[in-house]
Amino acid sequence: MAEDVLVIHRGLALMLCEDAAILEETLRAIEPLSLHVRRLGDRALLVPADEIDGILETLEDEGTFPRLVGSPPEVDAPDSRDEPVAEEAL
């Protein structure tokens, strides 16, 4: 891989918190969901855009109504690439 590659990672949502305390609070709230959340510093969380609905639902249940900006990206086909399967086949 080239050293100076620019990585553009699409299909993500950004959760931007006012401060580190809000970020910790948010992480605690969504922890039980077992989502794919990548933390970036003290204020930002990256999450696949198709997982944001579950996050919003959980936050709203806890009385948090974040400011929503933009619109979710359009998904061509349902993605189930990492959904675990139930039965052993091998």
């Binding site: 299909g11 949502a13 959760m15 931007l16 855009a49 619109s71």
Partner: peptide
Amino acid sequence: RLTIHLGGAA
């Protein structure tokens, strides 16, 4: 205090 950008690129 929490803003969610619903779609974009990192």
